[in-house]
Design a binder for these strands. Structure first.
Lengths: 206, 206
DNA sequence: TTTTATTGATTGAACGTTCAATAAAAAAAT
DNA sequence: ATTTTTTTATTGAACGTTCAATCAATAAAA
């Protein structure tokens, strides 16, 4: 059934199929055949659209990174002229967005973390993403405190976010988003104590 | 050169070789041949001593978990009748022990985290370890605060430790142990603020 | 001489990639 | 409108490679 303009459709299909396969059996057993079956297409099509399996995996990681970026950006765009605390809270919540907590996304994240230690292509993507989270946090803390204090606050909050996400993902019960957000926001309150005036506002933005 | 009693020697050799191979090329490319060459033995010996590659990988994960447990236990054993803050600090420092930060150990940890999502054998080991860290922390916090507060404090500190470790490991500059410990101890101070009397003691136990 | 430890060639299975063949749609021609 | 031609999309069998596991052969120690 070849209509024209299938490329973006197939690319999207195959990327989703890759995440589904990783969710099912892990990256090690996510063969091109299995991925192709998930997308309902032939195995050969992967080389056609992505040049090979490696290209598909890189494209998949780009997608996951992009999803995270958008989840954060969507929340922050609602905060024109918001306080630093508002922006930091939005960054926290964005990192615990549905799209990042689901099985396929979570297991894909883990697999790519491990792979990025040995594949320079993935490593660069990984570093850009880590740096982005850190910079965003640091930038907001800088509005309230001196440089060195802001840096350590950003490092601490970044670690807290990733750590809560990691332990929740590895846990058999899965990530308790509510609780993770509560702990992260609590830590944020402590970091900001003495620096801003607003009383944490204890909001319920999900 | 077959002497008797080679088993424990070979097992230890092969486990170290496995971590070295994972450090070099990642779990995906850590073939039995490469591991065996690292240990200076034949590939067949792996099946002989571990029943197969899976057995070797499981034994390797057990070793890494055991090393972490001992790094923590060693620090805590010097604190007979120590304060909760002392014990919590020792747990933090133990998690940033040399043995856990080195390239082979770090990359092995990451690889096993990803694998544990799909291999029930590794998953159980993983959960026992996570639970151990949480329980140890919770137990100490309970000496100073109510149950629910202790639980959240333990969850937060566990996430902070793992998050600092993770981001440091993924970072191109590697983990800055000093800085990580400083941030984690700072968070601990905030968690304990108002609960204990001792003034953080700003110690230099490495 | 018997036991223990080790080797390494062999085997069979599984993988990613390739490419000639195919078929549907779109475009062009009638 | 209908037929023909061209383009685009897709297939899946075949190929070469790589891997883990096996096991008969071997050699040192007991």
């Amino acid at each position: 059934m070849p209509k024209t303009g299938m490329e973006p459709i197939r690319r999207s299909q195959l990327i989703k199929a890759t995440m589904a396969a990783i969710d099912e059996v892990g990256l090690a057993d996510a063969t091109v055949l299995r991925i192709a079956r998930h997308a309902g297409v032939s195995a050969g099509i992967i080389s056609h659209y992505f040049g090979g399996k490696d290209g598909l995996l890189e494209a998949t990681m780009r997608q996951v990174l992009s999803d995270l970026g958008q989840a954060v950006a969507a929340r922050r765009s609602k905060l024109a002229n918001g306080s630093p605390r508002d922006h930091l809270g939005a960054i926290i919540d964005g990192n615990f967005d549905r799209s990042q907590v689901s099985g396929p996304a979570a297991k894909t994240w883990l697999a790519f973390w491990a792979s990025s230690m040995h594949r320079t292509q993935l490593q660069r993507l990984q570093q850009v993403n880590d740096q982005r989270l850190y910079s965003n946090l640091c930038c907001q803390f800088r509005r309230l405190m001196p440089r060195d204090a802001a840096r350590d606050a950003a490092r601490g909050l970044a670690a807290m976010i990733d750590g809560l996400w990691l332990r929740g993902t590895l846990s058999p019960e899965g990530l308790d988003t509510e609780r993770a957000r509560r702990i992260a926001h609590g830590y944020l309150d402590q970091l900001l104590a003495g620096y801003d005036t607003s009383p944490a506002s204890s909001k319920e933005t999900a």
